[in-house]
Amino acid sequence: MKRSLHYLYVCLTMLAAAGLANALKPTEMLADQGPKVDLETMIPRQFGDWKMEQDIGQLMVNPEVQAKVDRIYSQTLSRTYINGNGERVMLAIAYGGNQSDSMAVHKPEVCYPAQGFQLLNNREDAFSTGQGDIPIKRLVAKQGGRIEPITYWTTMGDMAVMSSSVKWKLEQIKYGLTGKIPDGLLFRISSLQSDEGAAYRLQDHFAHSLLGALTPEGRRHIIGMIGQGV
């Protein structure tokens, strides 16, 4: 009799836990609140000393990787910009309306090796937006004679936070407890040059120029609320 009651108690406890988990499952998409994101119109084709150049296909993505990216993100943007000195920066932005565990950002650490690149460097850094710093990653990818320094960051909701970090998980939990599903994006810039330091200086200059050309709403999407002085 006692054993039967014990099994009944365990079953009821499991059912209650399952019901609570289902009740707490986020269902409200933040992307559905407010204006829709349109990367093509949000990111200007010309700003400062930079103008968009016809895409010359510096990084060809294989169909398998592209299919995975398409499942994760609702929008992607890929452009090449050139300045008055003939220097080029490749820009890639991927926006997703659902940044839950099952739709986590597709990081360059995964994407580039999938294209046959070797990662020579992978370190954390910070980028100064002019109104505060945001966490970023600096990578160097190599394939044959091609050397490509890369800078990227990710956002979740209104915060720039590196994916897979403790803070990323805490932000997921925070949104989950309020029943909300955050949107987010991956912002990546890169250039083809062997001088790593010069490449990152060029990329930072490009990012500052781009941020200065965005609307307040555009800046919020790209770098989070820190761009609003919050």
Rank of each mutant, 00 (worst) to 15 (best):
K2M: 06
K2W: 04
R3A: 07
Y7F: 12
L8K: 01
Y9M: 14
Y9S: 06
V10A: 10
L12C: 12
T13I: 08
M14W: 11
A16D: 00
A18G: 15
G19N: 07
G19A: 05
L20I: 15
A23M: 03
L24V: 03
L24H: 01
K25N: 11
K25Q: 13
E28G: 01
E28N: 11
L30S: 04
L30I: 15
D32K: 08
Q33S: 08
Q33F: 11
K36Y: 00
E40V: 09
T41L: 10
M42K: 03
I43G: 02
Q46S: 15
G48E: 06
K51N: 11
E53M: 12
I56N: 09
M60Q: 11
N62C: 05
N62G: 06
N62E: 14
P63T: 03
V65R: 05
D70S: 10
Y73L: 02
Y73V: 04
T76Q: 12
L77C: 09
Y81N: 00
N83K: 06
G84A: 11
G84N: 14
N85E: 12
L91M: 03
S100C: 01
S100N: 11
S102V: 03
V105Q: 13
H106N: 11
H106A: 14
K107I: 04
K107R: 12
P108Q: 07
Y112G: 05
A114C: 02
A114G: 00
Q115H: 11
G116Q: 03
G116W: 14
Q118N: 08
R123I: 10
E124M: 04
D125N: 06
A126D: 09
A126F: 08
S128L: 03
S128T: 05
Q131S: 11
D133G: 03
P135Q: 09
K137I: 06
K137C: 02
R138A: 00
G144Q: 10
G145Q: 13
E148R: 01
Y152I: 07
M156D: 01
D158W: 03
M159E: 15
M162I: 06
S164L: 02
S165E: 08
W168L: 02
E171Q: 12
G179H: 07
G179T: 10
K180L: 07
K180P: 01
K180C: 00
I181E: 07
P182K: 13
D183P: 00
G184W: 08
L185I: 01
L185V: 05
F187H: 12
F187L: 13
S190D: 12
S191C: 09
S194V: 09
D195S: 05
D195Q: 10
A198D: 12
A199S: 13
Y200F: 15
Y200E: 11
Y200C: 04
L202T: 02
D204K: 10
H205D: 15
A207S: 12
H208Y: 01
H208D: 10
G212E: 05
A213Q: 05
A213Y: 04
L214M: 07
L214R: 08
E217T: 04
E217K: 06
G218A: 06
R219A: 05
R219F: 00
R219K: 13
I222M: 15
G224M: 07
G224C: 11
G229P: 02
